[in-house]
C-alpha cells in the first residue's frame, strides 16, 4: 500500500505542473487580461511603470512563466491584485468558511443518503422504496441554484425563520460566544441543507442500486440459509461491499471542502473559496485565479487518492490487483 501511495504521489507532480501551465496559458493568452487593470487612464505613466515592474509584468511571457513557477515551487503564491494582500492570506481567510459549509453538507449528504438507501433497499418495491426513489430522482434533477431560491423564499421570505445570506449577522461581534455560535448555525442551515440535500439524493440513488445488486449475491443467500436475520444481513453482510460507492462519493466530494461550491456560495453570499474564485475571475486577479485553480486541482487529486486508499482498506479485491 505504501508503494502505491508513493507511486501516486510521484505522478501528482507532473499532473500539477500540467494544470498549472494550462491555467497560466489560459489566463495569459487572452488579450488585455492584466493590461486592463494597469492601463487605467487615471494612473500616471510612472505609476503604471512602477506597477508593471513590481508584478513583473514588463517581462516577456516565458520569463513571467518561469518566475511564477519558481516562486510557486518555493511556496510563494504571490500578491493579489485586488486585495493588495498576499494570496496566502486571502485563501487562508476564505478556507475555514468553505470547510465548514462543505463539511456540513457532506455530513448531511452521507448520513441522509445512506439512511434513505437503507430504507429503500430494506423492502424493495414497497411504497417506502417508491417514495424515496421518486424523491431522490426528483432532487437529483433540480438545479442547486433553483432549490436555493425556493428555500430562501420559503424559510427567509415567507416564514422568516432563517437568514438568507452571509455567515454572521451584522451585530454578531457584539454577541456572546454562545449566541454567536447559534447565529452561525442559523446562517449555516440553508446553504448546507441545499447542498446536502442534492448530494444525498445522488448518494441514495447510487447506494440503493448497489445494495439491490448485492442482495442477490450467493454469500448473502448462504447467510440467509444459515438463519442470519434479514436486518443483520442488510446491515453487516451487505453493507461493507455496498459502502464502496459511498467511498467514491466521498472521494468526489472532498475537493469541495477546499474549492467550495461556487453557485451556492455566491447565492448565499457565503465568504468562502467559491466566492473568492468568482470575484477573482471577474476582477482578473491573476495570482488568485492561478492559486485557487491549483488548489482546487490538488484537492481533486487528493480526493481521488484518498478514495483509492480507502477502497484498498475496505475491499480486499482491489488490493490484489495492485
Amino acid at each position: 500500500m505504501l508503494r502505491v501511495l508513493g507511486r501516486r504521489l510521484a505522478a501528482t507532480i507532473p499532473l500539477l505542473w500540467l494544470v498549472a501551465t494550462l491555467t497560466f496559458v489560459v489566463v495569459h493568452a487572452v488579450p488585455g487580461s492584466v493590461a486592463d487593470l494597469i492601463d487605467n487612464p487615471r494612473l500616471t505613466p510612472q505609476a503604471r511603470q512602477e506597477i508593471r515592474e513590481r508584478y513583473g509584468l514588463d517581462l516577456p511571457p516565458h520569463l513571467q512563466y518561469l518566475r511564477w513557477l519558481s516562486s510557486l515551487a518555493r511556496g510563494d503564491l504571490g500578491v493579489s491584485f485586488l486585495y493588495r494582500q498576499p494570496v496566502r492570506t486571502v485563501v487562508g481567510r476564505a478556507l475555514p468558511p468553505t470547510v465548514l459549509l462543505a463539511g456540513t453538507a457532506l455530513l448531511i449528504d452521507l448520513l441522509l443518503g445512506t439512511a434513505l438507501a437503507l430504507l429503500a433497499a430494506g423492502r424493495p418495491h414497497s411504497w417506502l422504496d417508491r417514495l424515496t426513489t421518486v424523491a431522490s430522482v426528483g432532487l437529483y434533477g433540480l438545479p442547486s441554484f433553483w432549490l436555493a431560491g425556493l428555500v430562501i423564499l420559503l424559510f427567509s421570505v415567507t416564514l422568516g425563520w432563517l437568514p438568507s445570506s452571509h455567515m454572521h449577522s451584522v451585530d454578531a461581534a457584539a454577541l456572546g460566544a454562545g449566541a454567536r455560535f447559534v447565529d452561525l448555525l442559523r446562517h449555516l442551515v440553508l446553504p448546507a441543507g441545499t447542498l446536502g440535500l442534492i448530494g444525498a439524493a445522488g448518494t441514495a440513488r447510487y447506494l440503493r442500486s448497489t445494495l439491490l445488486d448485492i442482495r442477490s449475491a450467493r454469500y448473502l443467500l448462504a447467510a440467509e440459509a444459515r438463519g442470519v436475520s434479514r436486518r443483520r444481513i442488510l446491515w453487516l453482510h451487505a453493507m461493507r461491499p455496498a459502502l464502496l460507492p459511498v467511498i467514491t462519493v466521498f472521494g468526489l466530494s472532498l475537493p469541495f471542502l477546499v474549492s467550495g461550491s461556487l453557485v451556492v456560495e455566491v447565492i448565499f453570499s457565503w465568504p468562502g473559496m467559491g466566492r473568492v474564485m468568482w470575484t477573482a475571475a471577474w476582477a482578473r486577479d491573476v495570482p488568485v485565479i492561478l492559486a485557487t485553480t491549483l488548489l482546487a486541482t490538488l484537492a481533486v487529486i487528493a480526493g481521488n487518492l484518498i478514495a483509492d486508499l480507502l477502497y484498498m482498506v475496505a475491499d480486499p479485491r482491489s488490493r490484489r490487483q495492485e
Partner: peptide, 19 residues
C-alpha cells in the same frame, strides 16, 4: 487526467469573463 482534475466550472467562468 489533468483535465478531469481541473475545476471545470471555474474554467468556464474564466473563459466567459474573458470573452
Amino acid at each position: 487526467d489533468a483535465l478531469l482534475a481541473f475545476p471545470i466550472l471555474f474554467l468556464l467562468i474564466l473563459c466567459v469573463t474573458l470573452f
